[in-house]
C-alpha cells in the first residue's frame, strides 16, 4: 500500500509535502523534466499587476555552497500569468500557489483580488524580496506595515488562503510572524533569501549589476531551520519551510523544526528534477 504523505495547508490538500519555491519553476522549461502534478504544490514566480522588467545582468553570482540572485521580480504581469502559466499548470492537474508582489499595498490587494477569482489554490505574498527597492522587503521588515498589507489582501482575496513569505533579514522574525498572523495570514513561508554581495577582485566592483543580491542554497539551510523552529513556537498557523534544501534529509530537518511542508528552490536550478528526487528521499523519513 502506498503511504499517504498528503498534508493540509489552510484547507488545501497537497498530495505530498514537497513544493517548488517561487522563481525556480517555469512551466515551459521545468515542465519538460517532471509532471507538476507529482509535487505537493507548484509555487509560481512572483506576479505583479503589470509586467516588470527586473534588473539588468549580471543577476547571478556564485557563493560557497550557494548563489546570489538579483533578478528583481521580472515577470510578464497578471494577465499573461492567468492566461498562460496558471492555465497550463491547472490543466496539467497541478496544485498551484501564486506568489504575489506589488509596488503598493493596494497593488498587492488588486493582484490578490484578481487571483481570487481564478482556480489558483493558494496565494503567497512576497513581502521579502531583497532585490527591489520600492516593494518586497520594504513591506516585510516593519511589523505594522506588514500587518496592514496583509489585512488589505485578506479583505480582497475572497477566502483564498493567504500565505505570507517572510524575510530572514530582520532582527526577530517572530515579531513579523505574529504581526501578519494577527492581521489574518493563514500560513507562513520562510525563509526568503539572505542579503549578500560578491565583489569582483579584478574590477573591484560588485559582481551583480544591482550591487547586492539574495543568498540561497545549502549555505542558508541552518538559518532556515532555526527561523522555522523559532516561528513555530511563536504562531500556530501552518509553516512552509524553505532555504537550501538539497536532499530529503534537509527537508525532513525543516519538518522537525516545525514546517508542515517544504519548498525546494536552488536545488531545482541545479537539477530541474531535484524536487522529485528530494520527495522520494523524504518519503523514507515519513
Amino acid at each position: 500500500m502506498v503511504k499517504d504523505t498528503s498534508v493540509n495547508i489552510c484547507g488545501v490538500r497537497l498530495k505530498n509535502p514537497i513544493l517548488c519555491a517561487s522563481g525556480t519553476y517555469n512551466f515551459r522549461e521545468s515542465g519538460l523534466y517532471y509532471d507538476p502534478a507529482a509535487l505537493g504544490c507548484i509555487t509560481t514566480k512572483s506576479v505583479s499587476l503589470l509586467p516588470w522588467d527586473g534588473n539588468d545582468a549580471p543577476k547571478i553570482a556564485e557563493a560557497y555552497g550557494g548563489m546570489l540572485n538579483a533578478i528583481g521580480l521580472e515577470n510578464r504581469g497578471l494577465d499573461a500569468y492567468i492566461k498562460t502559466e496558471l492555465k497550463m499548470l491547472k490543466a496539467a492537474g497541478a496544485t498551484v500557489m501564486a506568489n504575489v508582489v506589488g509596488r503598493t499595498a493596494e497593488e498587492y490587494a488588486e493582484v490578490a483580488g484578481a487571483l481570487a477569482a481564478t482556480d489558483v489554490d493558494l496565494l503567497e505574498l512576497n513581502i521579502s524580496c531583497p532585490n527591489v527597492k520600492d516593494s518586497g522587503i520594504a513591506f516585510g521588515t516593519d511589523p505594522k506595515t506588514a500587518a496592514g498589507l496583509v489585512a488589505g489582501v485578506k479583505k480582497a482575496s475572497g477566502g483564498k488562503p493567504v500565505i505570507v513569505k517572510l524575510t530572514p533579514n530582520v532582527t526577530d522574525i517572530t515579531e513579523i510572524a505574529r504581526a501578519v498572523v494577527d492581521a489574518g495570514a493563514d500560513g507562513l513561508s520562510l525563509i526568503n533569501t539572505l542579503k549578500g554581495m560578491r565583489i569582483d577582485l579584478r574590477t573591484k566592483q560588485p559582481v551583480l549589476k544591482a550591487g547586492g543580491g539574495g543568498l540561497s542554497g545549502p549555505a542558508i539551510h541552518p538559518v532556515a531551520v532555526r527561523m522555522v523552529y523559532e516561528t513555530r513556537r511563536a504562531v500556530s498557523v501552518p509553516i512552509i519551510g524553505m532555504g537550501g534544501v538539497m536532499t530529503g534529509a534537509d527537508a525532513y530537518e525543516l519538518m522537525l523544526a516545525g514546517a508542515v511542508a517544504v519548498a525546494v528552490g536552488t536545488a531545482a536550478l541545479i537539477d530541474p528534477a531535484a524536487p522529485l528526487r528530494i520527495l522520494e528521499e523524504l518519503k523514507v523519513f515519513l
Binding site: G54, A57, K59, I60, N69, P272
Partner: peptide, 16 residues
C-alpha cells in the same frame, strides 16, 4: 554570453 543561474530557463537570471 551571460552569467547564468540554471541554464535551462527556470530562473530568469540571464535575460536580455
Amino acid at each position: 554570453e551571460e552569467r547564468m543561474g540554471c541554464g535551462y530557463g527556470a530562473c530568469a537570471g540571464c535575460t536580455c
